[in-house]
Design a protein around this nucleic acid. Structure first.
Length: 451
DNA sequence: TCTCGCTAGCGCCCCCTGCTGGA
DNA sequence: TCCAGCAGGGGGCGCTAGCGAGA
């Protein structure tokens, strides 16, 4: 469900048509080792450096935070006080669009009564030294995704225009009329007048799905750096790790670094230092689409790609594409090379994945590690247990689209559709009487042997 | 120092199948 | 006999974490 929400969020609230904003900005596609890769002009390190560099912050401050979204050769990076957030189901009620206060704790948290994705717009007011924010909560069921995109985009445009009158923030968006009225500026100030802490939000443009010509704005918060200055639980751990690093590591005679926390060894200091970070909760790289944090830029980039739908690794043998190279390799093994490196020692079974072999081996050993908390049933894998739990909850997630009968399993529903409604191509046919059946085992009902 | 490629692992969902029991 | 419930085995993909090696 969370993944679905994220998907909706990214699809409907964080994408802005690239052609409208950055027609000249595209992705270079490289082909190497039989793998197509799309690459941004800037490296992730450059992005990260730009995001966190003091020079960048200084320039923003000195130039009074100019927001420019129009296509421009200079506008490789757009600076915009925009942040997309998750709405949780508490407190402040929003009716379509309203103003709300922000609880600033490790990023931006917004609370609304009605769960669902929304768009929070944070405006940096240099003269007022306060934040102005506008939350847009559009009921998805009332609008199509396209309509919602237009709604939010127009609302954003109008908000930015209003804001720029007061705070000299210039935003140029598409020439379309706003559709949603804002609440009065006065109310906005009343709600947020007590907020005096200045914050900067950096927006990075990231290319979304190339087929849809979209970009995604990823917002960075200067508070990230501020937070680093203030010891948090994770920071404390990191500091502890740093302070105890010399105690934890021991260098062997052959220049090998040994981790005293685990069995890890490495001949390289850099690898060792990187490893030591795994013993802390330090995750300095924040995804501003879901507020999840990561240890490395690479992990963050991969994660953001899951929001944006960016899949740089394309299969040459089909039209599938993936976020990581590992996914592509695995896909190729499943679909094209049929390489199955993981072989069962007790039978001829072989698998593409180690986890599948592990699951398979349980059918030999009888191991059932996943115990139902409500009965004696135990499963060999997690999903089976989850499926089993439906027998306790009565959940029937699958609905026949014809008669609306609900089923606990998709397979049961498909058989129902075939047997009751005759849809889909029948799978089995009696070789003698040509009777159509849904399952091979149903042959026995015809008095015929089945394999 | 950073990034890429790779592996490992967990989770989710699906399909196909077989057995069972109630209508 | 029909049909839905339920479980077993397995395929395929989504995503994160960690590490070696090279730029």
């Amino acid at each position: 469900m969370a993944a679905t929400e994220i998907s909706v969020l990214s699809e409907q609230f964080t994408k802005i048509k690239e052609l409208e904003l950055m027609p000249e900005k595209g992705l270079k596609e490289e082909e190497k080792d039989g793998v197509c890769r799309e690459k941004d002009h800037r490296s992730p390190s450059e992005l990260e450096a730009e995001r966190t560099s003091g020079a960048f912050q200084d320039s923003v401050l000195e130039e009074e935070v100019e927001l420019v979204l129009a296509p421009s050769e200079e506008s490789e990076k757009y600076i915009l006080t925009l942040q997309t957030v998750h709405f949780t189901s508490e407190a402040v009620e929003l009716q379509d669009m309203s103003l709300l206060s922000i609880q600033q704790q490790e990023g931006v948290q917004v609370v609304v009564q009605q769960p669902g994705p929304g768009l929070l717009w944070l405006e940096e007011g240099p003269r007022q030294s306060l934040q102005q924010c506008v939350a847009i909560s559009i009921q998805q069921e009332l609008y199509s995704p396209q309509e919602m995109e237009v709604l939010q985009f127009h609302a954003l445009e109008e908000n930015v225009m209003v804001a720029s009158e007061d705070s000299k923030l210039a935003v140029s968006l598409a020439e379309t009329a706003g559709l949603i009225k804002l609440e009065e500026e006065q109310e906005k100030n009343q709600l947020l007048a007590e907020r005096t802490k200045e914050q900067l939000f950096f927006v990075e443009t990231m290319s979304g799905d190339e087929r849809s010509d979209e970009i995604v704005l990823t917002v960075s918060n200067s508070n990230v750096e501020e937070q680093e200055d203030q010891p948090t639980a994770g920071q404390a751990d990191a500091e502890k790790a740093k302070s105890t690093k010399n105690q934890r590591k021991t260098k062997g005679a052959k220049g090998t670094f040994h981790c005293d926390v685990c069995m890890f060894t490495s001949s390289r200091m850099s690898s060792f230092n990187r490893h030591m970070k795994t013993h802390t909760s330090e995750k300095p790289h924040l995804c501003h689409l879901c507020l999840k944090t990561f240890r490395t830029v690479t992990l963050l980039r991969n994660h953001v790609n899951t929001h944006t739908g960016t899949r740089p690794y394309k299969c040459n043998d089909c039209n599938m594409a993936f976020v990581t190279s590992g996914e592509l390799v695995r896909h190729r093994r499943y679909k094209h090379t049929h390489e199955k490196p993981f072989k069962c020692s007790m039978c001829k079974y072989a698998s593409v994945e180690a986890s599948k072999l592990k699951r398979h081996v349980r059918s030999h050993t009888g191991e059932r590690p996943f115990q139902c908390c409500q009965c004696s049933y135990a499963s060999r894998d997690t999903y089976k247990l989850k499926r089993h739990m439906r027998t306790h909850s009565g959940e029937k997630p699958y609905e026949c689209h014809i008669c609306h009968t609900r089923f606990t399993q998709s397979g049961t529903m498909k058989i129902h559709i075939l047997q009751k409604h005759g849809e889909n191509v029948p799978k089995y046919q009696c070789p003698h009487c040509a009777t159509i059946i849904a399952r091979k085992s149903d042959l026995r009902f015809l008095g015929l042997p089945f394999p």
